[in-house]
Computed example of a mutant assay.
Amino acid sequence: MERMTPRTVTLHGHELSYLDSGTGPVVLFIHGILGSHRNWAHLIDRIDDNHRVIVPDLFGHGESAKPVGDYSLGAHAATMRDLLDRLGIERVTLVGHSLGGGIAMEFYYLFPERVERLVLVASGGLGREVNPVLRSATLPGAEWLLPLIASGWVRARAETAGRVMSRAGWKPGSDIAAIWQGFTSLGDGESRRAFLATTRAVIDPGGQSVSAHDYLPDAVPIPTLVVWGSRDRMIPAWHAISAQQSIPACRVELFHGAGHFPHLDEPDRFAKLLRDFIATTRREKPPSASGA
């Protein structure tokens, strides 16, 4: 449960919201499309006893600003670099979920001297396949249809239906709860514009349009953990295996029965796995900034 008040920092004239807790080696968590720091907040008190945990809302998401501009992976990665610079942090373990995994890999490619380890959770950027719902956001006219789908009228009736089903014994899983929370954030025009810009930067009508296979094989090897839910309906779990083609010697952990948010389905297991991974791996010789 969230127990902290987000802080803000102004980057390039826009406010970025983030959580900052604990002391020690730094872990930077990056959420996915329609996500926010709330997707990770439950992990903070499982990690911050001996790690400093940084959990931002990406621009266009959560409590951060939603400016008109560049929402590409490179732009998000540069924002994460700017946040670390502002906080005086040199190197981090990067943990990225879904879109956040793509941002984490882009960050590593652009700024390898800043990364100690990579943890990719149901990550984008490892294959073409993605849920048709996200592909539909790239189709012409989506900007006109989305306000109707995300209207207060539709949301109110969906919430009423959910309450009725709950009284009948139905309990939404982690995927439904997290996706619904993200969907409800699309009630204002700025959030919808940012969502469409972010989605169209990495997805086209045929699927994911950005692939780590194009650039990670040439990157300096780094300790990498890939976590996936076996019942992921957003990005297929077999992309975890394809990650090994681009990231030599990466470790893959499959959470059987979990969906697209394995860190929400099994938070204790995920936290233990992350802590053990950090404790037992070390990057031998990070490159210098001049060699990046």
Rank of each mutant, 00 (worst) to 15 (best):
L186G: 11
S211G: 06
M4W: 15
P56N: 07
P67R: 06
G102C: 05
V53S: 04
L73Q: 01
A137R: 15
E129P: 07
P236G: 02
L43C: 05
V27W: 02
S72V: 05
P25N: 11
V68C: 09
R282H: 14
S211F: 07
C250F: 00
P25K: 11
A177R: 15
S166P: 10
I179A: 11
W40C: 01
L58I: 08
V252P: 01
H239A: 04
S246G: 12
E190F: 04
F111S: 03
R231M: 13
A197I: 04
D45S: 11
P217F: 00
F261D: 09
A249Y: 05
T23A: 12
S151R: 11
N50G: 14
Q245T: 14
Q245Y: 13
T8F: 12
A258E: 01
G60M: 06
D265T: 07
E116M: 13
I278F: 01
S151I: 11
A219T: 01
D48Q: 08
P236K: 03
P287T: 05
V119A: 04
F29Q: 01
R3Q: 14
S17K: 02
R275A: 14
R81N: 14
S209Y: 04
P25Q: 11
I176G: 14
D276L: 05
E63L: 15
A194S: 10
T160Y: 15
A168K: 13
H260R: 07
A240N: 02
V226M: 03
R38D: 10
L146M: 06
T184A: 13
A289I: 06
L58G: 02
Y108G: 00
R157V: 10
G100P: 04
H97E: 05
A161D: 15
L273G: 07
P286R: 06
T138I: 09
A258W: 01
P140R: 09
E143L: 09
G124Y: 08
W144C: 14
L87G: 03
I89C: 03
W144K: 15
D188G: 09
V121Q: 01
E15M: 11
E159K: 13
L216I: 00
T198N: 02
F261L: 10
P267Q: 08
V227R: 00
F111Y: 15
R81Y: 11
A158E: 14
P262L: 02
V252H: 03
Q244Y: 10
